[in-house]
Write a protein that binds this DNA or RNA. Sequence first.
DNA 1: GACCCGTGGGA
DNA 2: TTCCCAAGGGT
Length: 354
Amino acid sequence: MSVVPPVDSGVDISATLLAWYDAHHRTLPWRAAPGTPAPAPYRVWLSEVMLQQTTVAAVKAAFLRFTTRWPTVADLAAADDADLMAAWAGLGYYARARNLLACARAVVADHGGRFPDTEATLRALPGVGAYTAAAVAAIAFGRRAVVVDGNVERVVTRLFAIEQPLPAARPAIRAATDIITPDTRAGDFAQAMMDLGATICTPRRPACAICPLRIGCAAVRTADPARFPVKAAKTARPERHGAIWWIERGDAVLLVRRPARGLLGGMRALPTGDWTDTPPDDPPPLQADWTALPGTVTHVFTHFRLTLTVFRTVVIRDIAPELDGVWWPRATLADAGLPTLFAKAATLAMESPR
DNA sequence: GACCCGTGGGA
DNA sequence: TTCCCAAGGGT
């Protein structure tokens, strides 16, 4: 694939951007200042996985929490599965947490506890895709790698005024990024592109007037730079309904573990039935005097919207073993590591009058 | 390529 | 309220 820079301005894009980065880079817990030694590969990798589809603001606290509790990849590899999943609760995309653990254990078992230092070898690790492999190779190991994330897609489609819609435009975007990626400081260049995308070349109302790359940018010469990247039309989000079962016994509530794969896989949860396109009529998990609580719990996932009714009951008998659950003290439910959906349901259950 | 997979914040 | 968006990866 060949891509021709659209504006022959005589400006060296990477040199201009790196100079801007040296003066205006963001300070972040996982990042080293330009000109200082690179952070440990473990910290670069951990931050990159956390940042997948997740905001910088949300990752900051999680990164500090994880690195305090598990300072090295060996510490993380030795972590208890349930502890790690609970620590990840609230961050979403829980397959990342499962792969995080699998990756740490692979680094210890297959690489002597040291991260491999090439893009191809990194790419073979669980949870490490094209983006993360390139980012770690460039940022942690100083390799030249073509790093393309959502920020880079936006900056590059504007810089080159790429009209082709996503996702079909990805090969062209990658080729264009390759052209402007420098042979040295590729890690700083990648982070500079992300900082530019996060602070100036933003999705809406980009600050073109103060952009260091405006001289070489094709989109800024058009009526509406913000229309890049062009995206394919998306479909409507379907609606689903279901029931949640709140089962009390003494000072405790019954929690179960969700199946390892799939939605909210491997996480602690409240018992729930099927989620279907119409309100279900599921039988409760046990015969009891159930109360349907007033109100509902709504939660929006990537690809559907869920509305749940919470049913509450109190039992005397220990039914936890037969339901494959545990009795968790209600007073410490915040420590159970429940995904947000179940935390919402728990709040409704505990605040509903009896 | 299409689809699945969370969450919180901002416009 | 609704929609969009955020340092993607796996299947």
